[in-house]
């Protein structure tokens, strides 16, 4: 900590909420959520390697209410992080930085993540109905 109190730059308490900051915050939040989600990935792979009983437990967890809600959340987190990640890569190449473009592609990514989640879960539910 500095010995003298220096002025702070404006932070969350000062700025009005806007899509530019929401997309940035969500990218970090979904990244952290996805990192936590890798626990299920590792457990599922270890279960598949160790035998039918272990696999049945993982399948039962994924099919339970808590499991379904978690899977839905991770689907959206992955959809958002994927789309906004592509947006970041495009920005790294120098495109889409004008304020109106930035706002527009922020909304495209946010709404697109819900569309993508819907598509994936339409596939899930269609398979469930068919099985």
């Amino acid at each position: 900590m500095p010995a003298t109190a220096r002025p702070l730059s404006p932070h969350l308490g000062i700025y009005r909420w806007q899509i530019q900051m929401v997309t940035s915050i969500l990218h970090r939040a979904t990244g952290i959520a996805l990192a936590a989600g890798t626990i299920l990935l590792v457990v599922a792979l270890l279960a598949l390697a160790s035998g039918p009983d272990a696999w049945a437990k993982v399948a039962a967890f994924c099919g339970s209410w808590i499991g379904m809600i978690l899977m839905l959340g991770w689907t959206w987190a992955l959809a958002y992080h994927l789309l906004n990640g592509i947006r970041h890569l495009v920005q790294d190449l120098g495109y889409g930085y004008k304020p109106e473009q930035f706002v527009r592609n922020g909304w495209v990514v946010t709404l697109g993540s819900f569309v993508l989640t819907g598509l994936v879960w339409a596939c899930v539910l269609a398979q469930r109905g068919g099985a």
């Binding site: 598949l48 035998g51 039918p52 994927l82 990640g85 890569l89 994936v120 398979q127 099985a131």
Partner: peptide
Amino acid sequence: LVLLGVWFVWTVLSLLHLDY
């Protein structure tokens, strides 16, 4: 991960109706 992630979701979707 853009490429592998899309492949992964596709693979998980094709796993759903399979048994062990």
